[in-house]
Design a protein around this nucleic acid. Structure first.
Lengths: 143, 143
DNA sequence: GCGCGATATGTTATGACATTACGCTATCGA
DNA sequence: TCGATAGCGTAATGTCATAACATATCGCGC
């Protein structure tokens, strides 16, 4: 099992290894999504040298619900909500600004429900859902 | 403008060039999504040699609503509905079977509406939406 | 028919993203 | 103490996508 202790439905930051910590901090400090190689470049000084070190850390962070992969960008962001966003309010959706690259994470229970309903009717065993919106954010439109 | 003739809101197959035709046919004959390089391999005999030839054709097919890109797979499928699915029933969603790789395309107007509503409230100028479900399809679960 | 713009094409080279394979180390409980 | 599990480090490779440049083709106004 993934859980080494009980009490909550996903791990807390205290479980993180050094590499995971470094990668998470990098994502937290970023204004926009970062590719694995972006992260690697930022962590050379900390001793990271190979893409795999980053990918492995990302894999765990995503498992723990602390980060997300943006499929349409091949890039990564930290979870908006630091904690439990994923399972609490349903599937996370992402609005990605084509201009600045800024990302807004949200969840719509109705959307989650409708997709689950479709899966139920169709006999599709849903494991994971990706919802990504592309467009220009309000801030960029104003400027 | 992209339109050289009026009467309909996207192009019909008759507009396709040779390369576009080849790529579309390949997608139509496929049981599962194909990567650009898969397509290229299948079209070597027809004289295609470089990835770019495939990517350029795909770009146009997608513009015309005849094919879709699956972001979570970095692969492509032809539109389920041969014609107009995109704008008619709202944003297309895809259920991708982790097992066989088979893809089921559908559209849920309520989901489309909720996402559009979120965009409206937030001032996000929505350009394109990606919805991809991963899991096991009914057929594979039965087997 | 000629020239022009728009679009498609072909080719080479390169860039960006991701994983396989291998070996070593640390931790933990039987 | 042994073995299982998980993490780490490195090199090599695989996969996906685009830049840059040159050439060709079509429609159309003149």
């Amino acid at each position: 099992m993934a859980h080494s202790h009980e009490a909550h439905h996903h791990e807390r930051p205290r479980d993180l290894t050094r590499n995971q910590e470094l990668v998470l901090t990098t994502l937290n400090n970023a204004e926009a999504p970062l590719s694995a190689y972006d992260i690697l470049d930022k962590l050379r000084d900390e001793g990271l040298r190979a893409p795999l070190q980053v990918y492995r850390a990302l894999e765990k962070l995503i498992e723990h619900g602390l980060a997300h992969r943006l499929e349409s960008l091949n890039a990564f962001v930290c979870c908006a909500d630091a904690n439990c966003h994923g399972r609490a309010s349903g599937t996370a959706a992402f609005a990605i600004c084509s201009n600045g690259g800024r990302v807004d994470e949200f969840a719509d229970p109705e959307v989650t429900a409708r997709l689950a309903a479709w899966a139920g009717e169709t006999g599709f065993a849903l494991e994971r859902t990706t919802i990504e919106l592309r467009g220009r954010c309000a801030e960029c439109r104003a400027a």
